[in-house]
Write a protein that binds this DNA or RNA. Sequence first.
DNA 1: TGTTGTGAAATTGTTCACAGCC
DNA 2: GGCTGTGAACAATTTCACAACA
Lengths: 229, 229
Amino acid sequence: MGSTSAGSGSADAPDGPGIPEATVSRLPLYHRALLALSRAGTRKVSSEQLAEMAGVNAAKVRKDLSYFGSYGTRGVGYEVDQLLEEIRNDLGLGRAWRCVLVGVGNLGSALISFAGFRERGFDVVAAVDVDPDRVGRTIAGVEVFHQDELGAVVADTDAAIGILTTPPEAAQQVADALVQAGVRAILSFAPTVIEVPDGVVVRHVDVASELEILAFHEGRRISPLGSAG
Amino acid sequence: MGSTSAGSGSADAPDGPGIPEATVSRLPLYHRALLALSRAGTRKVSSEQLAEMAGVNAAKVRKDLSYFGSYGTRGVGYEVDQLLEEIRNDLGLGRAWRCVLVGVGNLGSALISFAGFRERGFDVVAAVDVDPDRVGRTIAGVEVFHQDELGAVVADTDAAIGILTTPPEAAQQVADALVQAGVRAILSFAPTVIEVPDGVVVRHVDVASELEILAFHEGRRISPLGSAG
DNA sequence: TGTTGTGAAATTGTTCACAGCC
DNA sequence: GGCTGTGAACAATTTCACAACA
């Protein structure tokens, strides 16, 4: 997951023989849990507790963490701040990540205003749109430029991540422009497939698909099917 | 899952020995592709073409579809409208799904206003919030009630799906209230683990986690690591 | 001929269970 | 005694490759 993923799913990652993708997708859960523990002043945590907080099981926690080395103490557990630091480093959260958002509609605006990003180290440093009514505005301190200037905006801000919140028809050409501008990580909310060159990572968030998956399960509950045709 | 996922992930599904979860998560992709083909007037499609449109490979398409029976013709391909109808039924999209949204902040408001839901058969029929300033308002035709009335709102609207867009601190108690009210499918945007009884399906959309996963890959590109400590 | 449907193989991910260590 | 780290067993998923068949 892709995913999945959240509904998620992603293109090939250029990581060679490194960390399993399933493990990578759980690192943010561990990170979040450790952050809460650290803020609460907790010093030690067992794989069992961490698993509970992350909503997975303890064996998975230990296996996942083992890919990064041995950070625990047998008979004791993990030192919260040390493990947090390790995962922060693995996730590359020691720095602030600059993001450019493309498509300032309802969702795009909401994402710009969403404080949770900055807290976690992701700064939306600029936005672009094609609509002249939106260009020139400032949303939550983020200036909106014209989409034609995307290349210059990426270059000026040195953004590493593109957030794609356009309608699906525009998504591919925006992705092309982002890649052209040097962006190699894209988070797309557009419900369409995006083709990118090797080395560029795309992750998808598709809310309607998530609802459809829920509907699938809900529909099964009501009429279990089993035989048809 | 990749993404997902983008970031996704879900609780146990109550489906018995039915369709693999990985297959279920791809049905919306096929649905979307088939819808586009149907609208374009295309009558037949091969697993190869469908795979291209859905961003997967052909073997996967054939295997996935085979769980639902034989809808293709050897040497020819699949009949677009017939397959579309089949997947519509499987996903339970023949009907409109009523959704209640909890938490009318930036994201919640944006989701209410997002027309894409209704197009795909998901109606947000009511919203609730704890903030007195928000209660009583109407957003894109959707009335906002007080969260204390959640049970009554669910009962009155007969909503089957809950959309959870509260801050993480409130997520668990809202989920409890939704379950209490009879909702058995929840789409949560809150970055926290949610516990629900067996039979209730939760899917998570966690945007910050998706960004962290992108950051992980991006960080690896720059400094491949390989040896530490 | 061209494409599906599907067993079998390969790969990836999860869980078990226990040796090793604090 | 308790908990990590991990090889081995198991399960899920993907991919291969080809027989079946319109």
